[in-house]
C-alpha cells in the first residue's frame, strides 16, 4: 500500500516537474532575448503531432528500432549465453577472461570508422557497432551474477543428481537473473546511444532518427531536431519501462 502511494507520488512529482520545465521554456521562448533557434515546446509538440499525423516519421522509427532491437537481441543472446557458460564452466571462463580485459577498455565508437570501411554504410555496420558496445556490459554482468551464486545451491543440486543442463536451467539461470537484468538495462541504454550515433556519423543517405536529426540540422530546422530528439528519448524511456515490466514479471520473487 505504502509503495503504491509512493509510486503515484513519484509520478505526480515527475509530471509537475516536466510541466514546470515546459512552461518555463515556453515563457522564455516568448521573450525576445531568447534565441529563436531554441524553438518552443508548442512548436515542437506541433511538429511531433504532425510527424504522427502524416506518418512520415514511422519509416524512420521503424528502421531505427529495427537496428537497435536486432543489436540488442544479439547482445542478449550472445552476452547472456556466453556469460552463463563462462561463469559456470571454469575453463571457458578462463578462456574469455583475457578477451574481456583486452577488448572491454576499447571505446567501441572508435571502431565505427573501421567498420565503415569494411562493411560500408550498411545496417551491418550499425548493428555490429551496437553489438560490440553493448556486449561487454551484458557479458560481464552475467558473469558476475553466475560467479556470485551461493555455492550451496549448486552443491545441493549436484547432490540431488541434477544434470549439468538441468543445473544451468533450474539453478544458475534463476539465481543469476537479477544481475542479468541489470546488464540488459545498461546494454539497452547503450543500444539507443549507439543507434543514434551510428546514424549520425555513418549515414549520408537513408532513413533513421539519427539521420533525420542530421538532415534537419543541416537545414537549420532546430524544431525538427528537437522533435526527433524527443522521439528518441521517448523510445529509450519506453523500452526501459518495458524491460523493467518484464523484470517484475519474471523476477516476481524479488519484489516480495
Amino acid at each position: 500500500m505504502l509503495s503504491s502511494f509512493k509510486k503515484s507520488r513519484f509520478i505526480v512529482i515527475s509530471l509537475v516537474e516536466l510541466l514546470l520545465f515546459l512552461s518555463l521554456w515556453q515563457l522564455l521562448s516568448m521573450t525576445d532575448w531568447f534565441p529563436t533557434y531554441v524553438s518552443s515546446p508548442a512548436v515542437v509538440l506541433g511538429i511531433i503531432s504532425e510527424f504522427f499525423m502524416t506518418g512520415e516519421v514511422f519509416p524512420h522509427i521503424g528502421i531505427s528500432l529495427y537496428r537497435s532491437i536486432v543489436g540488442f537481441l544479439l547482445v542478449v543472446l550472445f552476452g547472456t549465453g556466453l556469460g552463463i557458460l563462462a561463469g559456470f564452466f571454469q575453463p571457458i571462463g578462463r578462456f574469455f577472461d583475457p578477451v574481456v580485459s583486452f577488448f572491454n577498455p576499447i571505446p567501441k565508437i572508435a571502431l565505427l570508422p573501421v567498420f565503415l570501411v569494411w562493411f560500408g554504410v550498411t545496417d551491418m555496420t550499425r548493428i555490429l557497432i551496437i553489438f560490440t558496445s553493448a556486449f561487454f556490459p551484458c557479458f560481464i554482468a552475467t558473469l558476475d551474477g553466475v560467479r556470485g551464486i551461493n555455492k550451496l545451491y549448486l552443491w545441493s543440486a549436484e547432490n540431488m543428481g541434477a544434470s549439468k543442463f538441468k543445473m544451468l536451467y533450474r539453478v544458475v539461470l534463476p539465481a543469476a537473473l537479477p544481475k542479468i537484468f541489470d546488464g540488459w538495462r545498461v546494454a539497452l541504454a547503450l543500444t539507443f546511444v549507439m543507434m543514434f550515433s551510428s546514424e549520425m556519423i555513418g549515414s549520408s543517405t537513408g532513413k533513421g532518427l539519427g539521420f533525420m536529426i542530421l538532415n534537419a540540422d543541416a537545414y537549420g530546422r532546430t524544431d525538427i531536431v528537437l522533435a526527433a530528439v524527443i522521439v528518441i528519448a521517448a523510445l529509450g524511456f519506453l523500452f526501459d519501462r518495458l524491460l523493467i515490466g518484464l523484470r517484475g514479471r519474471v523476477l516476481w520473487w524479488q519484489n516480495r
Binding site: 513519484f10 512529482i13 515527475s14 516537474e17 531554441v38 538495462r185 539497452l188 541504454a189 539507443f192 546511444v193 543514434f196 550515433s197 539519427g210 536529426i213 542530421l214 540540422d217 532546430t222 531536431v225 528537437l226 526527433a228 530528439v229 528518441i232 528519448a233 529509450g236 524511456f237 523500452f239 526501459d240
Partner: peptide, 18 residues
C-alpha cells in the same frame, strides 16, 4: 529523484546538435 531515475534511460547525446 524523477530527473535521475526517469532521465537515466534517455540517450542524452541526442541533444548534442542542440
Amino acid at each position: 529523484q524523477p530527473i535521475f531515475t526517469a532521465g537515466y534511460p534517455i540517450p542524452r547525446v541526442a541533444l548534442y546538435p542542440i
